[in-house]
Amino acid sequence: MSEPWEDDELEGPVRKFMYVNRKAPYGTIYALESLEVVLIAAAFEQDVTLAFLDDGVYQIVKGQDTEEIGVKNFSPIYRALEGYDVEKLFVEKESLESRGLTADDLVVPVEVISREQMADLMEEQEVILSF
């Protein structure tokens, strides 16, 4: 028997969605609005993967303090993703290293993978959203 809250769920198979984050936060709105999509998408119970590469790794760097630029600091939200069952966060090793960063510099636990693994992971997806 289906639960009442399942009534308006979408029909169709679970698909593999990847959100590709390649842009730094604050300079443009892409990082924030991309995160807003991820939060909404969580309700659809798809197979969600977040990829951080290139300047996208700066989105999840620790110690962001936006008080003086007058913009909301949204980096704490990445730590809340686990509560939305968004648990697959992958960061590209080469992108971190070329920016002088390590996994210890990030606000959230992630899996650090090589560029080659990232390329393979992208190929495994069905829907790729880049912002």
């Binding site: 969605f17 999509v37 909404i40 798809q46 959203l129």
Partner: peptide
């Protein structure tokens, strides 16, 4: 409408093409 419409399009379409 809401962002759910984008996710629905991703689920129900054969291809989603992004222009930006």
């Amino acid at each position: 409408s809401g962002l759910g419409q984008l996710i629905e399009a991703g689920i129900q379409s054969d291809r989603l093409v992004v222009f930006g």
